[in-house]
Structure formats: structure tokens, C-alpha cells
């Protein structure tokens, strides 16, 4: 299951043309292999054991789309997310689901929902904008990384290798969507009372947030202030670890407005392919040329 992560083309090209490349190349070849589940092209999945009809809940339909997609070779899939702003009710369920699923500490958020009030009484409007990582096809966050810790993997997802990242946060400044946050090593229970034995108390209570997260198919706990992912930049990864299980991203399954869709845009029969073909589709800051993989319906 161990696989080398692929280098993106631009870097290879760069190496070819740079005179000084030889030495770097050597160094790169020596680089220790990384185990990143995201790079696992053979996403074996557990089957969805019943038929899904168009009348079924979108969640089920997408899950069956997902199964179809996982059966294809990785390079033929194109994961996209579609967010229907007409259906989003600004509930933040996705925000929190993501936080819990990925055991995000204070200050780290992958999918905030931005709320804006517009208009004047009594003609008022409110807009809700969930903002995961756009998984840009031209991601400005990637080329700036000095150590290739962040890159677009075969799934087309911009991932971060926590063991590679030096925590320089250059990528954070490069992302036009504010989609990256840094893990400062905090815990939500930090300010609570110890008083164990008298009340339940912090030492035991913090277990749920210190126990392992499964991001990128790795288990990492938080028992100190310095071990990765503490000290790393973090971001939405389309829940690769769940896709692998044949499960949709956590934000998608818990979307109570059924505003969030996920799937393989290359599959003409998939719900997402349908949706992004609608005329009311748009992407954020398209003018920057980042080519986001997150589409919004308005």
C-alpha cells in the first residue's frame, strides 16, 4: 500500500530546465517514502448493498454515485463539490461535523459558513456561504511550499503531508480563500478545571479531542504541543479517508439543508455532473484563475 506521492508536472518540468537540478534531483530521490492513504489509488470500498432510486435521499444517491466512481481508475475520476446556496440555511452542521470528524483543535476550521445580511428593513436578505477548500486545479497554495508538503494528489485533492510540512505558513498567505489554518496545539478543554474526582475534570474530559483523528488515513493523537499535526497548516481534504471507505465527506452527509453535493463530475450519471451543468452555477473568485473544484448554485 505504500506508494510514492506523485510529483506534479510543473515541478518535473522545472527540474528538467533548471541547470542546478541535478543535485536537487538526487536529494529528492533519496527522500524517505511517505505513506499517504490519499495516494492509495486502489481505494477499495465497502459495497452499498441495496439499490438506490431517484426518489431516494440525495445522500444515498450520492453514496451510490461514489461507489461507481471508486470502481474507476483514479485518474478518470474528478471529485467535485457542489453547494446549492438556495438550500443552505447557514446551520453550521457541516462546520461542526468536519471539526469532529477531523478532530480539529481550536483555531482550526476547514469549512466555516459565512453569513451576511443584506438590504434594508423590511426588504432584507441573508446569504449563507459555506467555504471548504476549493481544491483548486491551479492551486496558488501549492507552488509556494518550499518542501512540497502540500500538493495535488491523484485524486485531484490538494493534500498536506503533515510529516513533511515545516509549518512556514507560506501556503496560508497564498490561498485566496482563507482555506488554510494553522494548528497551534490548543485544546478546547484547555481552560477547564482539573478537579478530577470532584467533578469529571479536564484530564479525562479532554480524551475525546486528544484521541486519534483519521485524516489522510493516519492516526494521530494530540498529547503534546509539538507533534504533527500540531505546528502544521491544515485544510479540508474532501475527507479522503472516508471516500476510501465508500463514505461521503462528513460535511456532505450531515448537510441538513441538502445543500452540499459531492461526487465524480466525470460520471455523466452522477448527481454532481447534473448540477454543475445548470446555468446558475458559479465559482468563487474565478477571476484569479484558480479553477476551483467547488461549485456554487445560486
Amino acid at each position: 500500500m505504500k506508494k510514492r506521492k506523485t510529483e506534479d508536472l510543473s515541478r518535473r518540468d522545472f527540474l528538467k530546465i533548471t541547470g542546478a537540478a541535478v543535485s536537487f534531483l538526487g536529494a529528492l530521490e533519496l527522500a524517505p517514502e511517505k505513506v499517504l492513504a490519499s495516494a492509495d489509488t486502489s481505494l477499495e470500498t465497502r459495497p452499498l448493498k441495496f439499490d438506490v432510486s431517484p426518489e431516494d435521499d440525495q445522500i444515498l444517491r450520492m453514496q451510490s454515485d461514489l461507489r461507481r466512481a471508486l470502481a474507476k481508475p483514479v485518474e478518470e475520476r474528478r471529485w467535485v463539490m457542489v453547494i446549492d446556496l438556495r438550500k443552505c440555511l447557514g446551520c453550521h452542521a457541516c462546520t461542526i461535523a468536519c471539526v469532529v470528524e477531523n478532530k480539529l483543535p481550536p483555531g482550526v476550521v476547514y469549512r466555516p459558513v459565512i453569513i451576511e445580511e443584506l438590504g434594508t428593513y423590511p426588504n432584507v436578505a441573508m446569504r449563507f456561504l459555506p467555504r471548504p477548500c476549493m481544491q483548486c486545479d491551479e492551486p496558488p497554495c501549492v507552488p509556494v511550499c518550499p518542501v512540497n508538503a502540500t500538493y495535488k494528489d491523484e485524486n485531484g485533492v490538494v493534500v498536506i503531508d503533515y510529516d513533511q510540512c515545516i509549518g512556514c505558513r507560506y501556503c496560508v498567505t497564498a490561498c485566496p480563500y482563507g482555506a488554510r489554518t494553522f494548528d497551534f496545539g490548543d485544546l478546547y478543554t484547555d481552560e477547564t478545571a482539573e478537579s478530577e474526582g470532584i467533578i469529571f475534570g479536564k484530564p479525562s474530559a479532554s480524551a475525546y479531542e486528544r484521541s486519534a483523528s483519521y485524516e489522510y488515513g493516519e492516526t494521530r493523537q494530540r498529547n503534546d504541543h509539538t507533534s504533527s499535526p500540531i505546528g502544521n497548516v491544515r485544510k479540508c481534504h474532501f475527507c479522503l479517508h472516508r471516500l476510501k471507505e465508500g463514505m461521503l465527506p462528513a460535511c456532505t452527509t450531515t448537510c441538513i439543508g441538502r445543500a452540499t453535493y459531492f461526487g465524480d463530475a466525470n460520471d455523466q450519471d452522477s448527481l454532481v455532473a447534473d448540477l454543475i451543468a445548470s446555468p446558475n452555477v458559479m465559482r468563487l473568485k474565478e477571476e484569479l484563475g484558480t479553477q476551483p473544484r467547488v461549485y456554487y448554485l445560486t
Binding site: P143, P146, Q164, I166, G167, Y170, F182
Partner: peptide, 26 residues
């Protein structure tokens, strides 16, 4: 000290990304 993982600074030399301005600067 500003780096999240300064113990990995060697990676910029051995596993770096030359197209990163940060790399070039280091």
C-alpha cells in the same frame, strides 16, 4: 522559531521545491 516544525528545516535542502520563492530564499 516561527516555523511550526523547525526541526524539519533540513527538508528545504534535501526535499525542497525549487520553484517556491521560500525555497529560493532559504
Amino acid at each position: 522559531l516561527d516555523l511550526g516544525h523547525m526541526e524539519r528545516i533540513w527538508k528545504v535542502f534535501l526535499e525542497g521545491n525549487p520553484s517556491s520563492v521560500m525555497f529560493q530564499m532559504v
